[in-house]
Design a protein around this nucleic acid. Sequence first.
RNA 1: GGGGCGGUAGGCGAAUGGUAGAGCCGCUGGCCUUUCAAGCCGGAGUCUGUGGGUUCAAAUCCCAUCCGCCCUGCCA
Length: 471
Amino acid sequence: MTSVITRFPPSPTGALHVGSARTALFSYLFARSKGGKFLLRIEDTDRERSRQEYTDQILEAMRWLGLEWDGDVVYQSKNEAAHRAASERLLKQGSAYRCFCTEEMLEAKRVAMRTQGRPYRYDGTCRNVDPAESERRAAAGEKFVVRVRKPEGGMTYRDLLHGEIKLRGEDLDDIILMKSDGRPLYHLAVVCDDIAAGVTHVIRGDDHLDNTPKQMVVYQALGAPLPEYIHIPLILGSDKKRLSKREGAENVLDYRAAGFQPDAVLNFLALLGWSHPESREILTKAELIGAFSVDRVGTAAAVFDQTKLRFLNGKHIHDRPPADRARMLADFLKTRGETPPDLKDLAAMIEVNGQRGDTLAEIADYIRFLWERPKAYDEAAVAKFLAGKAELIEKIRCEFEALADFEGESIEIFFRDFAERQGVKFKDVGQAIRVMLTGKSVSPPIFQSAAVLGRVETLLRIDAAQSLMKR
RNA sequence: GGGGCGGUAGGCGAAUGGUAGAGCCGCUGGCCUUUCAAGCCGGAGUCUGUGGGUUCAAAUCCCAUCCGCCCUGCCA
């Protein structure tokens, strides 16, 4: 048995979609789990729709996700000569033929059959044009496409997930391999390139289930062995329709911008259609590779659940040591045009924050007050915890000023005692301090936060809150 | 219209002829607690889209039906 070779062949007509990313992931996991190769091919044969910027974005997204491919990226357009040669060969063999029907004629036939309620198939007008005449008309400059002859009977193939798929002969068609401008079309190009690359397993969305027989015809005409097929289900939006832009991000890079971790996205995507044999859910990329197997991949389309992605993302982030998180957060903030504190300070702040926040964006929102003074104060919080408490607040200020030891735990112990002495609830003291230091009623532990801020800054913020109260 | 694929709680999914709904997300009650998370303990949600059939036994096999998606391009 030759070793496994899979490939991911996106067309650069848009950014990398999460659905495509999952297809890429499954191909990647399959190859890696088998010790095989995973190739990347950009299918840019559609000159009208393909754009360089999309290619760049796809490559960027693949790198970000960590779906590293083997060898160089293959650009399908560079293989055009090979595609043309294959077409010539099939023509000579007689397994393909020139079709001189114009697009207008075909369209008319299509409309006619449809209005009669009949399924459209190419009527075979040019199927039996004499080879010599075909040659002559082509030489005379008449436009033509190249079609491959479908087999007489039906076709059956075995998909590793779906089992046997049967297509009847009358549901097949003589598909077009080459356009009249001499450019190769998808079904020819994929097959040629997959053969050339030695692809052993074609893993793709199940929207290709009906394309497979068409491509098998090409394989057979070319005399090449068939690959194994694994058609994985598509991803749906919460309305059970195909995932759309309304669902939030469908572009993988949008998740990076929102503060998601590549491993978390991979983890989530893997769980959409695949399950771990021991039901584990939080898995690193290495663990996914180790545990992956096709027999645990399902066949039903799955709904993209943003909530669970967020949960997993939180796990993936908080599982990392503070230094890692600090680096991740700093990089993230820089891409947003913010200036983060230095890594050592940021790591300390992140430790204070604990498990709060599921994305880097949320984590930043939790701890930004540690390096940035509150720009505004939550009105309800002020009304509830500060209003009418000028005297208490002044006392708190004095205590902060006089504290011997400015460390989280001792500050807390001190204020517990303070609350008791004042005959007020500890909670109210804590919340008052929280609002003054953060501007909000929700934040990471406030005494540890005060310690991070330091005495000077803590007092300054209390001053600011006091002057705000007096206005 | 023709053909293909799919259907287990709100979502992801276990169970691959043998007690359905394990586990996870979410929701919810509680504990913990200076707030909010995290963590821990508990709860609700249900009988496998529907109807037949095969079988001692069906989510699982067969048929029909409904719904969804895909193909039916000189797109990929």
